[in-house]
Amino acid sequence: MSRQASGLRAWFLQRATAIYLILFILYALQHMIFSPPANHADWQAWVASPLVSLGLLLFFASLLLHAWVGFRDVIIDYVHPTPIRVTVLTVAGFVLVGCAAWVLQIIILAQIA
């Protein structure tokens, strides 16, 4: 198996995404504390600003990747029979992809508005 396969990459992704997640959460927190959006329009405007949009996209991409790796780890540790494991992983995959689509929809809608 080549080094590109899922061991090192998954491990690295989990850590790299974690770092980004922390940084973005810190940014979002300080925004919420110092200039909290007063209403829905404010929210939308904030999300629609190009940098925030990009950051949010990256944030959710990282979050989903992070979740995928973490979830996969848990399944590998605890769920041993292959059919159950494949089923659970597939379902989890669909849920995560669904979440991704939803996030994308929200951001695009915000952009259009």
């Binding site: 198996m1 080549s2 080094r3 396969a5 899922s6 061991g7 090192l8 998954a10 491990w11 996969r72 780890d73 590998i76 540790d77």
Partner: peptide, 15 residues
């Protein structure tokens, strides 16, 4: 040695 430790199991089960 590094190649043989690759994959999700051999080493990367360490949490």
């Amino acid at each position: 040695r590094l190649n043989s430790l690759e994959g999700p199991y051999k080493m990367f089960r360490c949490h």
